[in-house]
Amino acid sequence: MSVLQRNNVQLAGQGDRAMVFAHGFGCDQNMWRLVAPAFEDGYRTILFDQVGSGASDLSAYSADRYGDLQAYADDLVEICRELALHDAVFVGHSVSAMIGVLASLSDPSLFADLVLVSPSPRYIDDGAYLGGFTAADIDELLESLADNHLGWSALMAPVIMGNPDRPELSEELTNSFCRTDPAIAKDFARVTFTSDNRTDLSKVTARTLILQCREDAIAPVQVGEYVRDHIAGSEMVLLDATGHCPNLSAPQNVIAAIRAFV
């Protein structure tokens, strides 16, 4: 299976530069449905599913391999190399903001610009640093995730994972684009919410834009400011939006901010 199949890479748009969109914990590349098409006129747009999410190849997933964010960053580097990308624009939401940071440190030639949407380098409080959560909060989250994955079964996986020939199948299944194998969801949540990438921020050399929502329960404003203060030359735009997913709740604001930056 090729890298592009493994990560369900979807290409669209035309232009000299490429723009790569990465989704975070919880859903899949559909998170960019209201944003990515706006850049198809002028950019090659590249969307993909993290391994374990969406229509990625679940057989490529193993808890051992995907034990930290670097593994996801390595996948991203592979995708970019497969597509021969240079100086592309990277747009990463939530945990994928940090995955993009790690990928750009692995190979600085890939991305000239980083757009970090609702980023957090560390979710758990640590001394003076306020990530927004305690370690006990995250343990409780990991424990409770299974409560909302009752409907999952291996039998349903092929249907849930997208069946382009028979769209009516997936329509019967509600909540489908956020469905994940509960074991993988738990692993990904653990990797996400226990990650600590604060020391990586100062190594970033790409131009960086941070998009921050006013009221974000996952990545609060002070965390966005922390990222801005630790990536040299970066700028932060406070969006007139609430919640953690401005790409869905305020797509026009996100589009405008990215346009103004690149």
């Binding site: 859903c27 998170m31 409770s144 909302n148 919640g243 997913c245 869905l248």
Partner: peptide, 14 residues
């Protein structure tokens, strides 16, 4: 807290 995270990352997008 877990409900809050799940709401932001799954329910609200859905």
């Amino acid at each position: 807290v877990p409900g809050r995270i799940f709401y932001e990352t799954n329910i609200s997008p859905l």
